[in-house]
Design a protein around this nucleic acid. Structure first.
Length: 280
DNA sequence: AAAGAAGCCAACCGCGGAAAA
DNA sequence: TTTTTCCGCGGTTGGCTTCTT
């Protein structure tokens, strides 16, 4: 139909990797106006990016609450399960892993898990029998760690997991049913809405209630296992409070490809002002 | 040490749906 | 009701990095 592509109306729209300077502009704008109304973002900020690109940059990289780095075996298990249940509904799957983006999950599936699952599906029987050391060997895999509140013990075993990979998207009814089913073994139970969304606030409340809120540890920072967005979330409060000192640290860090001292400064601030670094 | 292959991931593209006009 | 606009999603790509030979 006559709908013009979102991004081709701007002559000279920039493409390619985002620079730290652009990140700062985008983050500061969103901190002032909130996410949404993406159309207005490039208009009001002067960013030479289309609205879609701004939204993608925010949701996939800059948004507070994003966890980056290696996926845990538990996360792998959840992804494998949900992919079998929902198909390639990455947004729906990501709603069960609020710290991961759909893009991240999609990439991880395509580069790691798909191969693993495919390899393991070759001998079909082994898919359902003895567990192996591999985290995703069996669709029944769940992290055995008692520390996880994502207890999956109530999971209905194999009937929900046909040997053939689900490739078609479920209908809304199916999605609701799947969501209900999933609630039996997934603690942060999302409402069975059409898109199976769980809000960040919901997740936060669940985390708080369970007393098992995940904390971004200093050793994660040291290991580079934390995103800039995660650090942004730590400083979002002082930033929104117009703390220029904090924002300078943020700028410094964004402009620094190898976060070091600036990161330490941010961590220090987060320790002092944010009891719970998870902030959505 | 160099070249090619493979892996990885940020970003782009196009489509569909929802909301607004 | 129809058309237009915007947003979000899933698939795909291109470039950078790492691994292998």
């Amino acid at each position: 139909m006559g709908r013009p592509p979102c991004c081709d109306n701007g002559i000279g729209v920039k493409k390619g990797p985002w620079t730290p300077e652009e990140d700062i502009v985008l983050v500061s704008y969103i901190q002032q106006h909130g996410p949404g109304n993406w159309r207005s973002v490039p208009e009001n900020t002067g960013l030479m990016r289309c609205s879609k690109s701004c939204r993608l940059r925010w949701t996939n990289y800059l948004r507070p609450g994003i966890k980056r780095g290696n996926f845990t075996p538990h996360e792998e298990g959840i992804i494998v399960h949900l992919q079998a249940l929902l198909g390639n509904k990455w947004a729906a799957i990501a709603s069960y892993l609020p710290q991961r983006t759909d893009n991240d999950i999609k990439n991880y599936w395509n580069t790691h898990l798909k191969k693993k699952v495919k390899r393991l599906q070759q001998p079909v029987d082994s898919f359902q029998t003895a567990p192996t050391s591999n985290a995703v060997t069996s669709p029944n895999y769940y992290s055995p760690t008692s520390s996880s509140h994502h207890s999956l013990q109530g999971m209905q075993p194999m009937n929900s997991y046909p040997n053939t990979t689900c490739t078609s998207a479920p209908s809304n009814n199916e999605t609701a049913t799947i969501s209900n089913l999933f609630q039996t073994w997934m603690r942060p139970s999302p409402t069975a809405t059409a898109n199976c969304k769980i809000t960040m606030q919901d997740f936060q409340e669940e985390q708080d209630a369970a007393g098992t809120a995940s904390i971004i540890c200093n050793d994660q920072i040291a290991a580079g296992d934390v995103s800039k967005s995660s650090a942004l979330e730590m400083v979002v409060t002082p930033v929104m409070g117009a703390s220029t000192a904090t924002f300078s640290l943020l700028e410094e860090w964004l402009l620094d490809d190898m976060p070091g001292q600036a990161m330490d400064g941010l961590m220090g601030l987060s320790a002092g002002c944010c009891a719970d670094p998870i902030m959505f």
